[in-house]
Design a protein around this nucleic acid. Structure first.
Lengths: 227, 227
DNA sequence: ATGGCTAATATGTCTAGACATAATTTGAGT
DNA sequence: ACTCAAATTATGTCTAGACATATTAGCCAT
């Protein structure tokens, strides 16, 4: 009954109960430690966790205060597509539609910070769930990450190969709604102009940009997050 | 040169460099503490941070191993719409289009776990950025959270009032791409059928469900996350 | 008033040692 | 072989005390 999680729970309860309303300064670590009968380090652990969650804001000398506009953070766990499909209870499969070297188009090179028209590997993969189109993956891959390796992207999808073979350091992901272009519509078996949820990801590794991928999801797809 | 962040950085470097490949067991805290010349608690802090980030997995007695399929987690910071607009350098405004009590439709009641046809407050708000439609907010609000309060949703948007006046405990958010329905198209000034990025949020407070809100974003809207 | 120095203070982090807890390994005993 | 209990061991957490660092508040001189 005196672990840091108990301290966190009690502080959180008081904030939720508005004993300490938004913007208020809460007692210092020393005071809370005395009140709860624990060491200051334990209170520190609890408050640090609440700060990471965005519930309080902490500044040296200024103390700890309850966030005014608690930024709600949702965590998205980006799954490997195969596992995503399997977790929905559907059979997974994929078809490699294209695999060729192409000079990078200007917008692609710009996004990844590569020289214009640098040679890149262009891959098109259609992921299937229960035999039906699930996601159309359009990928630009920096061939520099493949030095010495000859992955067979028709046996293991590029999506999965990269996760296990390349250390990804950072990146970003953006969601948009777009009308299915003619080719997309045909490949995915939907009417042209159908709204598709599109995810665009860029990822960087230890030694530079790795890939830019566009995932066009089948109609009705939901990207779900909890907070 | 001997803080926990340095330890984290060095361990991360070795993982990235594949000194410790995916699946491998890394040395125990004691061993690392000795090697780096710090206390075990410092190594523990570093490894705990890496575990939270999903880079390693830790189990008592079994030790710490490098994650096989490092789940990439992206964090979405859900902004108050007004601040989102302002951060884009545009003037913010909103229009309250509807505000009435309506018996909850079955799907709404079901999602929030309320009895069917329970009376709910239905709100429609059009958020404007630089005078142009930005988001159409369609909200079902549990009137139980308003006991004793009489917020004027034409003065402060429901979006913002809730964040500051109700303690939100948990919730979920889902993104989909949908074709603009006739009414949506008219209100937002786009052609009917235009793909819109739709966010659907349900939120729960300390004393039950709070609200279900649907945010239909203007064409071209991007929801951006970093990881 | 204004600018800048100084002291006070709350959080940030580290250490060394201790006990708690969970999971694996080992060793009986059947 | 098999089962169950005990010993082992790596991580999880706590304590008490210390020093580091950022930031504020107060003071003094201009």
């Amino acid at each position: 009954m005196q672990g840091w999680e108990d301290v966190r729970a009690e502080v959180l309860r008081r904030i939720r109960a508005r004993d300490w309303p938004p913007g208020a300064l809460i007692p210092g670590e020393e005071a809370l430690a005395t009140e709860f009968g624990v060491a200051r380090a334990t209170v520190n652990r609890a408050l640090t966790a609440l700060a990471e969650a965005g519930v309080v804001e902490r500044k040296k000398r200024a103390g700890t205060r309850v966030s005014e506009l608690p930024v709600r953070r949702a965590r998205l766990e980006i799954p490997v597509i195969r596992l995503d499909v399997l977790s929905r209870g559907l059979a997974y499969g994929f078809k490699l539609l294209a695999d060729r070297m192409v000079p990078a188009p200007v917008p692609v090179a710009a996004r990844l910070g590569l020289p214009e028209h640098a040679p890149m590997r262009y891959l098109e993969t259609l992921h299937l769930a229960g035999g039906r189109p699930f996601v159309l993956e359009t990928r630009w891959l920096n061939p520099a990450v493949l030095v010495g390796e000859q992955p067979d992207f028709s046996a293991v999808s590029a999506n999965e190969w990269l996760v296990t073979h390349v250390s990804l350091v950072s990146g970003d992901i953006a969601f948009t709604a777009e009308a299915a272009a003619a080719r997309e519509a045909e490949v995915m078996g939907v009417a042209s102009g159908t709204p598709l949820l599109v995810a665009e990801r860029t990822t960087y590794g230890t030694s530079g940009p790795v890939t830019l991928v566009r995932l066009a999801h089948a109609p009705g797809h939901r990207v779900q997050m909890t907070f």
